[in-house]
Design a protein around this nucleic acid. Structure first.
Length: 369
DNA sequence: AAACCGTGGAA
DNA sequence: TTTCCAAGGTT
């Protein structure tokens, strides 16, 4: 056995997170679902979603057959919603292409939507006991520090190097080793202020020997986030129902139900546009544009009322500034619901797949809680 | 290759 | 307060 692997497995036996919900059995569906939810997501964030999702959709068949809105509702708030749409497609493929069993080779597994090399390897190692190396953020950080790799982890040559390292270090018991290196990265070899004095690899760590643990992995300075601006429409019908619009499948918040949006020039889905910085002032011209655009697009005769104060929501790669616009419907003619437009009672709206800021707006309107 | 895709915790 | 970044994958 490779000394590093043996050291890590010994450490894991004593100090590992053996109580994580997805470490209680070796069911491929449950392991795969956990891997998808944990992509770019911290353990504590994923836990409640994992329990709820598994309760509602406990196997491949249930997920494959569920309405997409139900899947997105279960994912609502967790972010990166393409994961949810891809997960359902993957479940459908497991059922139709693989007879209801997660594929047992890396080549087949990575053909599933949303399953890349690391996710596939994690599932194959844990579900089927295969010797498959992972390379997630934890493993990557541990390898970069223990080998004092100064190269930019983002560039493809460095990634190839890291994959080679990961494969070489992974022992036959990849299931245990993968968990061990992830726990070391999460508990000891943390991004900032690593706890090197508690690390089982301290005597084998090149970065520590060089006094550079805190400086690795190297980071490149990032550009400031661009700003995008949008108005959100809050229109209620005579029965107190609120109008939501389903977003296109692609792009931000894909497939989620959202307050209808517009830019100050009347353009639709402004938060998909990266090159426009629309003003958010309350002027007659802006009101005219919004009123005309929404009335036409939604098939309603709207009368705009108050504009709320500006709020913001920060994404990974841009900042959204928005204002809610209250409006009422003139006359008795209310547009019918359609595939992408639907009137919801406030309590029902909150059960749908909503982006976090929209959920916050509706929750606050529903009187707290 | 580089941009895109969410949200919240931690410091 | 701002900044960083997390069990990555897709286009």
């Amino acid at each position: 056995m490779i000394p590093i692997a043996e050291t890590l497995l010994d450490w894991y036996a004593c100090h590992g997170r053996h109580d994580l919900p997805w470490r209680q059995n070796r069911d491929p569906y449950q392991l795969w679902l956990a891997e998808i939810m944990l992509q770019q997501t911290q353990v504590e964030s994923a836990k409640p979603y994992y329990a709820r999702f598994l309760q509602a959709l406990p196997n491949w068949q249930a997920l494959a057959a569920a309405p997409q809105d139900r899947v997105l509702a279960l994912w609502s708030g967790l972010g990166y919603y393409a994961r949810a749409r891809n997960a359902q497609r993957a479940a459908q493929e497991v059922v139709t292409r693989f007879g209801g069993h997660f594929p047992n080779t890396l080549e087949a597994a990575v053909t599933l939507p949303g399953v890349g090399r690391s996710t596939a390897a994690a599932v194959l190692a844990s579900a089927y006991g295969q010797r498959q190396a992972i390379l997630d953020a934890n493993a990557r950080r541990v390898l970069i520090r223990s080998h004092a790799i100064e190269a930019d982890p983002k560039v493809s040559a460095t990634q190839q190097w890291l994959w080679t390292l990961a494969s070489a270090l992974t022992p036959e018991d990849a299931h245990g080793y993968n968990q061990a290196i992830q726990d070391l990265g999460a508990l000891i070899c943390t991004p900032r202020q690593p706890r090197c004095t508690a690390c089982p690899l301290v005597n084998r760590c090149l970065a520590h020997a060089q006094g550079r643990s805190h400086a690795l992995p190297v980071t490149v300075n990032k550009a400031p986030k661009p700003q995008r601006c949008a108005f959100f429409l809050l229109v209620v019908d005579t029965e107190g129902q609120i109008l939501l619009e389903k977003r296109p499948d692609s792009g931000i918040w894909g497939g989620l139900w959202c307050l209808p949006q517009a830019a100050s020039d009347g353009g639709a889905f402004p938060i998909l546009c990266s090159d426009t910085l629309h003003p958010l002032e309350d002027t007659p011209a802006v009101r005219q544009s919004l009123q005309a655009a929404w009335s036409r697009r939604l098939g309603l005769n709207l009368q705009l009322k108050a504009l709320e104060e500006e709020q913001q929501h920060v994404f990974t790669h841009f900042q959204l500034r928005f204002r809610c616009v209250h409006a009422r419907v003139l006359g008795s003619a209310v547009a019918d619901s359609s595939a992408t437009l639907r009137w919801y009672r406030p309590a029902d709206a909150l059960t749908q797949g909503l982006p976090t800021p929209v959920r916050r707006i509706l929750r606050d309107r529903s009187g707290g809680c």
